[in-house]
């Protein structure tokens, strides 16, 4: 199955990768190991999964205000997701990507999706993200 959804590029860029999807928001502080890319919030459904290089689809960031700091470090090290898709606009993920752009010229696309489009995503989908926020999905 293949289809296309149109999102709003919060931070525009190109990326592709396997989707890691959850309906549970996450705090990267205490929830993401920036040395490895592993999700370590033991109360989160994706606990134990590695999000490095994946297209991480989460409704939003939650809780701690240190999420951007952890994500920025992951971007520097190279353990960050390839892109982040959210349900509606999430400023925390966008901030890490903006600062990484300003400091290191690293671009990690962050795309805001309509809740209905977000809900259609599944772990294991292959997503290709365009600079205009267009996302081509292939479900193997």
């Amino acid at each position: 199955m293949a289809y296309m959804i149109q999102g709003k590029p919060v931070l525009a860029g190109q990326a592709e990768g396997e989707v890691l999807f959850s309906r549970e928001p996450i705090s990267f502080w205490g929830g993401y190991d920036c040395q490895t890319g592993e999700i370590i919030d033991r109360r989160h459904p994706l606990s134990g999964s590695n999000a490095g290089g994946k297209v991480l689809a989460l409704p939003s960031a939650r809780g701690s205000s240190s999420t951007p700091a952890v994500l920025l470090e992951a971007l520097r090290i190279g353990t960050a997701p390839a892109a982040i898709l959210t349900s509606g606009t999430d400023p925390f993920f966008a901030l890490a990507s903006i600062v990484a752009d300003e400091m290191y010229a690293i671009t990690m696309p962050v795309v805001a999706l309509a809740p209905g489009d977000f809900d259609k995503l599944r772990t294991g989908d292959l997503a290709r993200i365009g600079v205009d926020g267009r996302i081509d999905i292939q479900r193997p």
Binding site: S65, A69, L72, E73, M103
Partner: peptide, 17 residues
């Protein structure tokens, strides 16, 4: 300011810059 905890090189570099 919450950015005060040393989380990694990137944040240190940001503050020092």
């Amino acid at each position: 300011i919450d950015s005060t905890i040393y989380i990694g090189e990137a944040n240190l570099e940001f503050a020092e810059r």
